[in-house]
Structures are given as C-alpha cells and as structure tokens.
Simulated assay, not measured.
Amino acid sequence: MTSRPQTTVLLHGEQTGDLVSVTEIVVPPRSPGPPLHVHGFDEAFYVLDGELLFRVDDVVASRGAGEVCFAPRHVPHALANRSDVPARYVLVCTPAGFERHWARLAAAAAGVEPPEWALAPPPEVTVVGPPIGGPDGDLTTRR
C-alpha cells in the first residue's frame, strides 16, 4: 500500500456554497500523519474502519470505528495511524476549501489533472509541531 493517504472528495464547496466539504480518506498502516498544525476551518473526523490516534490541543486520544474526533479552527491538531492495518475516515470541513488539497493529491496519484473546482488555492495550513506518529510525537493516549 502507498505511504500517502488515498482520498475521495464526496462533497465540495461549489456544491454547498462553500459551507462544507466531505472527503473519505484511507490512511496507510504505520502512517505518522501530518505534522501538528493549525488552520482557519473546523474539522470533524468520523472513523469508519481501523483506529486513529488524534491530538487536539494538549489531548491525545484514540478513536475507532464509529467514533468521532473534532478539531476546532485555530487549535493545534494532528492524527496518525499506528496500527498495522489501514484506517478509513470521513472528514467534514467547515467552511469548505481544504477538499481542493485532497482532490489535487488524488489527481496527482492517478496521473491526471485535478478537477476545475480544485484549482483555486486551498486554505493556509501552519505547521506548529512534529507528527504525533513520528519519533518526536506525543506517545500518551487517552480514550
């Protein structure tokens, strides 16, 4: 399996007046995930399969199938898949915009051009720390 997430945008901003986007994401096994970061939109993560480790602000928690994690805008957060199997989740972003990032990744992986709606720049993301699944990440978890 690839080391990058596999993504499918299910609902994009042009379909919702830029209010919300929905993306299905498969995180490969042993993926350290993105670095700790902040941005100006809210994210809700609904885990469909597997288990993901989340850090939101100073709280680190594991979430499995059927569980949700919420990361409010401007709050540092990250996720990782520390297990030996892929994890799959649905990401809901409000307002919309970051789905353009996921659509561009999917297009690049497929060797095609991204859809026209994904050509505008995605919202800015600011890295504020290391990935939680990497060697410098936080290892303390709470359920």
Rank of each mutant, 00 (worst) to 15 (best):
P29T: 01
V112T: 14
D49L: 03
F45A: 04
G40A: 15
N81S: 13
D58T: 09
C69G: 09
P29R: 03
D57A: 14
P29I: 04
A109K: 10
L52A: 10
V26F: 08
G111V: 10
L79V: 11
L19W: 01
G33A: 01
G66V: 07
V27R: 02
L36E: 11
S21P: 06
H101Y: 15
E67H: 06
G17S: 08
A61P: 00
L91G: 13
Q15Y: 14
E51K: 01
P35L: 11
H37P: 03
A61W: 02
P35A: 12
L52D: 12
V59G: 00
R30P: 08
P72W: 13
R88N: 00
V38M: 09
P32M: 07
S21R: 02
V38G: 15
V47Y: 05
S21Y: 04
Y46W: 07
T23E: 01
F45K: 05
P29K: 00
D49E: 15
R104D: 10
E113R: 00
D58A: 13
G17P: 09
H37F: 05
W102H: 14
A109S: 15
V85S: 12
P34C: 04
D57C: 11
P86F: 07
V85N: 09
H39T: 04
E43D: 03
V112S: 12
G17A: 10
E43T: 01
P28D: 05
V85P: 03
G33K: 00
D18N: 07
L19A: 13
P114K: 08
V85M: 13
A96C: 09
G40H: 13
P76Q: 12
Q15N: 13
A71K: 00
T23C: 02
F70Y: 10
L105Q: 11
A71R: 00
V38P: 07
S21G: 06
V47N: 00
P34D: 02
P86R: 06
P76M: 15
P28C: 02
F70D: 05
E51C: 06
V56P: 00
H74T: 12
A71F: 01
R73Y: 15
F70A: 11
L52R: 04
Y46H: 13
A108W: 14
V68C: 04
D49S: 09
P114C: 05
F70Q: 01
V90G: 00
A78H: 13
H77V: 06
G17N: 03
V56C: 08
L36G: 11
A80N: 06
C93D: 12
E43S: 02
R82W: 05
D57V: 11
W102S: 15
